[in-house]
Write a protein that binds this DNA or RNA. Structure first.
Lengths: 344, 344
DNA sequence: GTGAAAGCGCTAACAT
DNA sequence: ATGTTAGCGCTTTCAC
């Protein structure tokens, strides 16, 4: 069933039916009601391509997922984020277009999306501290919202971010309050903006207590299980090992725990660990590692918020930049305990 | 730059330019070359909506991701699969349309996709043993490929599946060869077809050795960490505990290992564990749980294969059903060892 | 308040 | 081998 058929069926012109369906004010209430009912009854739904061709809009939002050419892993936060954003799009009759591209071809992918006008807006994932995509998208004139922030000019574009700095500051303060003095940081790659903010929070907490950040206790790599394992083993073999660890991501945390176990030590007694993870900081259920359960993650929420913000920007253009800062989930596990007296 | 402008620029008709670009045979090689070069030089790229409107095709593939209303978790295999499929679409100039819908509204989502002709084909995720979606999609006449299989009529639709039966049979045989006799199975929900096949493989291996499957050693639930933990703890407290466990999924395996540790036992000595996981059976790196590394998972591969099959079906319709059965990755960890003499 | 007609950018008969 | 023309299904002037 298309517009033509529907309008003929109603004895009206395509124009009127179109106007009624799209809530144009000049249609009489009576006709609008009649038209909308008929549309529903016949299961009419406009052809998005025809609509897009006529309006120049696509009713679609693009997500460009860069896949690293070095280590083809998909960021685990991705699924949750997409689910959150997808719900919002469904509610607003927008399609979600996913574009998976090798990171080296990312610029081309953005330019292609813009040139073909396949999408009305874009969500930017995983911003680097100094990310060229921001300038590119501004140049292309495509509305966009960044999930996260870059290191500078954060007043010049739209973003939704988790307060990573404060989360790590709180985590570190928590351990300091328990008497820990040598606290290690197992961080993500500092090319990523979020990792820089996390370290800043960690350092701020130490400095506020008159402790100098120790480069020998701060680590920065891709957040894998192996990374958590290697670093933790090395730390524990140190003559003056840390009594506590602040770690990011579930995978890393799994490695940390395995290393502690393999060293014959006990989490929460010999070494305290605080995990930050905005994907899987779900319900903790009898253990010291968060697990999948029925609760939404903050990334899921961030996905919803990014999508809502972008749709709003597309609908009401010309406004100034928008942003939203979420307080992070922080999982403080059963694995945290006071520092051994010797380490105070 | 659109077709009209490009053709004017070349002093040719739109038709000729269109034909040259789309590799129609009747265009002279000279013109084709000239046209293609001009197109590239001007960065011309056809408007997909106009093209779709004219051809009735969308150049897009739909992925409907049902989000469970009970436990809003995203299946962890999802990210990997999407990445694999996405690469194939990119190479073939197809868009990937993601539709995230509450599972109760799934039928409506498929019908909407079909009615609006938003996509040329669909990939079906997570088939149940008796899945109504197969019949629905046949009725809708939309080409589709299932990632996985259903319990019956597997000759009547297209699918790509991992040989779950054989994987679990091999895993079980492996443990039997080590002398184990009481082997537990920690399986996924049996509503899912893959879980049924996994149990079938496990049972077949036992029966082939003259052992009767013991209902008290077989478990079936959503594959969370907590599940792996709970079941393993319970098993180990049993008066006649199993000496080995076959477990599915990384999360479950993490729970299994934690439970073994908490019970004061050692994996590979007191209890042997074989993990099956097609997502994260990546390189194992010094531990007994697979970790994220640079290697592709079999789900990534399945994503590619599904996408390729679907594009082929769309391009060459009218052929009979197609399918592909992949041999599963099977991670046999350092955590497997011979059965204690008492258990033989 | 409603309708006729043009046009969005492309493809596909149907010429030539 | 190339061009002309008529749509694809919708929105949007413009006229009434």
């Amino acid at each position: 069933m298309n517009l033509k058929q529907l309008s003929r069926h109603l004895g009206l012109s395509q124009t009127t039916v179109s106007r009624a369906l799209n809530d144009y004010p000049e249609v009489s209430e009576a006709t609008r009601k009649r038209v909308k009912e008929a549309a529903r009854a016949h299961g009419y739904s406009p052809n998005p391509r025809a609509k897009g061709l006529a309006t120049g809009r696509s009713m679609a939002i693009g997500h460009v997922i860069p896949i690293s050419t070095r280590h083809e892993i998909v960021n685990p936060i991705f699924g949750d984020f997409i689910a959150g954003a997808g719900e919002v799009y469904s509610r607003n009759n927008h399609d979600m277009l996913l574009s998976v591209v090798p990171d080296v071809e990312e610029e081309r992918a953005y330019r292609a999306l813009a040139a073909r006008r396949s999408v009305d807006g874009i969500i930017v994932h995983g911003p680097r501290a100094d990310d060229p995509r921001i300038a590119l998208l501004k140049e292309l004139g495509l509305p966009f919202v960044v999930h996260g922030r870059t290191g500078q000019d954060e007043q010049s574009y739209n973003w939704v971010d988790v307060n990573n700095r404060r989360a790590f500051q709180r985590a570190t303060e928590f351990l300091l309050d328990l008497g820990h003095r040598r606290i290690a940081l197992i961080n993500g790659v500092e090319e990523m903006d979020f990792a820089q903010r996390r370290r800043a929070g960690y350092e701020a907490a130490l400095i506020a207590r008159g402790l100098a950040p120790d480069a020998g206790l701060m680590f920065s790599e891709e957040m894998t299980e192996d990374y958590g394992y290697r670093i933790t083993r090395a730390l524990l073999e140190h003559p003056d090992p840390p009594s506590a660890i602040v770690a990011a991501s579930m995978l890393t945390a799994i490695g940390v725990r395995r290393a502690i176990g393999d060293a014959g030590l006990t989490m929460g007694r010999d070494v305290s660990v605080v995990i930050h993870d905005d994907v899987l900081s779900y319900l903790k259920n009898g253990g010291d590692i968060p697990i999948f359960t029925a609760t939404r993650s903050s990334v899921h929420l961030a996905g919803q918020l990014c999508a809502e913000m972008l749709l709003d920007i597309i609908h009401n253009p010309g406004q100034s930049w928008r942003h939203k800062l979420l307080e992070a989930d922080l999982t403080i596990g059963t694995s945290t305990g006071p520092a051994p007296a010797a380490n105070r």
